[in-house]
Write a protein that binds this DNA or RNA. Structure first.
Lengths: 118, 118
DNA sequence: GGAGCATATACGTGTCAAGGGATATACGGA
DNA sequence: TCCGTATATCCCTTGACACGTATATGCTCC
């Protein structure tokens, strides 16, 4: 699944499809990519469940499917917990600096603090 | 960046480091992976900013860095909007079925609805 | 039914990176 | 200073995949 989105052209195609469904020809024009390459990448994306297609005469319209993205999100979850801990630590650190600023009135013009409290 | 996490062994290493920092030898043992391979993957991860290391005598302790994960999360953001729309659509669909259940008291024992409202 | 467009597949080629093993570097202890 | 441990780097081979070109399939309209 990660191998799929590791390919830049495939990510470009996915980004295109966020706004709305597109035909192969539209993708080909917008990404300036030879048509067989578009079709092949779409094939990979479809096999991996990232997109699905419907037939409209000779055209095929491709649109996103949510499931794989949710899986990526699920993989990311543990790390998200980890990095928010770090953001909290940073916040605490900055809070301490705020306190030091309050105690030290000599006002050496350091960093401005424009953070809001939760 | 996606190429980095596309490699299964590297994802395994990252998952290991979620709980706490680890030395190369510990990773080697837990993942049953030859040591040069561990070092090489760690090198890639470090160059990409996913991990950082500190020296402890002959040991090197590796721990996660949050930034690249936040970038992955940022990339995922537009798609998250997209898939929550779909979840909402599903919710609306199920809500409609709820209404139909209420209107139709013939109570054909279909799916139980155990969803909560937000 | 034939022409033309839209899309898919087949094949050949080059590149790049993972894996394995051997070896180098660095540090701590006797 | 010598040895053992811990980690990093080097070399080589192999496989996978992206890309380009050529060709096949399928549909619409005249």
């Amino acid at each position: 699944m990660f191998e799929i989105i590791a390919e830049p052209n495939r990510r470009a195609i996915l980004s295109l499809l966020v706004s709305s469904q597109q035909s192969v020809g539209e993708i080909e024009r917008e990404l300036r990519m030879p048509q067989p390459m578009v079709s092949k990448h779409l094939r990979v994306l479809r096999d991996a469940g990232f997109v699905e297609s419907t037939v409209d005469a000779q055209r095929r319209l491709y649109r996103l499917k949510p499931e794989p993205f949710q899986e990526v999100d699920a993989w990311l979850a543990p790390f998200r917990r980890f990095w928010s801990v770090h953001v909290d630590a940073l916040e605490r650190h900055l809070d301490r600096m705020d306190h030091m600023d309050h105690m030290d009135q000599s006002s050496t013009p350091t960093k401005k603090k424009t953070r809001g409290r939760r």
